[in-house]
């Protein structure tokens, strides 16, 4: 892999290894995601795609490896902010001890989102008994005036902050074509709308890198086409980098500029769609399903 000076990487994953008990779920996974790209992570079922996602977004603490996020604001070590066990060297180095103690107490998954990574889930996870717009308001939690006193006294600054949040939420609903559903319960929306609402909610956190876990699962062909246009628009107009897991090869090949293929927890190919589709290891991994040549949907 060579570093492209015009498109520097936003995400660098190096030597990522994950063990569950005796099972080696990920073995030395390394790849990069370039800023402003649409990248995809593919592989047969059980290859470890979602495990990679869970490590990237801080739901799993990887056994080994390094994940670095480079945003214009800062470079973040995503493994560090999850809170790691103390090492022997910490006991003689107060600064690193304090750092680790801080993240052990206050670190966690939420820090990853605060650093600029947002995600959606394979099986949609909305706040089902809250309205669509409330879902988006919750996502803006960190950008709002959270001062308790200001909120209880309903100060002008607080009301302004709430109004802004509401406008932002409506703006995102419009982008996703959900303005009509604003005051409906998220759990009552049709499935396709729920999928879009979940992406809109992720966008409300102001991410630099958006991770979509099988965004087209359960969508009909028309919805899938709309979705791929939407994803492209998010990248072009709203400046996010997109990393997605997807089984729909038509969508992946048409949309992404860079593909990483996983099999049995290892990276077997990495490159643009054209190269990857012809890669012998990929063909071998998919052999039998012939999904590569078979643009079924």
């Amino acid at each position: 892999m060579t570093t492209d000076p015009i498109h520097p990487p936003i995400l660098e994953v190096a030597g990522l290894t994950m063990r569950f008990g005796g099972i080696l779920a990920l073995n030395d996974v390394s790849f990069e995601v370039r800023r402003g790209s649409i990248s995809a992570l593919i592989g047969p079922n059980g290859a470890g795609k979602t495990t990679v996602f869970n490590c990237l977004t801080g739901f799993y603490k990887a056994t080994e490896g390094q994940i670095m996020l480079h945003t214009p604001r800062a470079t973040t070590d995503l493994m560090n902010i999850l809170g790691q066990p103390f090492r022997t060297s910490d006991w003689i180095n107060p600064a690193s001890f304090a750092n680790r103690l801080y993240y052990k107490m206050l670190g966690g998954t939420h820090r990853v989102t605060q650093a600029g990574v947002a995600r959606t889930f394979q099986n949609v996870r909305l706040f089902k008994e809250m309205t669509a717009i409330e879902n988006l308001l919750v996502a803006q939690h960190l950008q709002l005036n959270r001062n308790l006193v200001a909120g209880l006294l309903q100060t002008a600054a607080y009301r302004q902050s709430e109004r802004d949040a509401l406008e932002r939420a409506y703006a995102w609903l419009k982008v996703f074509g959900l303005a009509e559903d604003a005051n409906r319960l998220a759990g009552e929306l049709p499935y396709g709308h729920q999928r879009r609402l979940e992406i809109a909610r992720a966008m409300c956190t102001g991410p630099r890198l958006l991770c979509l876990d099988e965004p087209a699962a359960g969508l009909n062909p028309r919805e899938t086409v709309e979705l791929s246009e939407l994803i492209r628009r998010l990248r072009d107009e709203h400046g996010v980098t997109i990393l997605l897991i997807e089984h729909d090869m038509g969508l992946v090949m048409g949309l992404s500029e860079h593909i990483v293929v996983l099999d049995y927890g290892e990276v077997i190919a990495d490159g643009d769609p054209h190269t990857v589709a012809r890669h012998p290891a990929v063909l071998a991994a998919y052999l039998g399903t012939e999904a590569v040549h078979d643009d079924e949907s």
Binding site: G58, F59, F121, A202
Partner: peptide, 8 residues
């Protein structure tokens, strides 16, 4: 889980 993914 969704809350944590939203930075809360």
């Amino acid at each position: 889980i969704a809350c944590r993914a939203l930075g809360i």
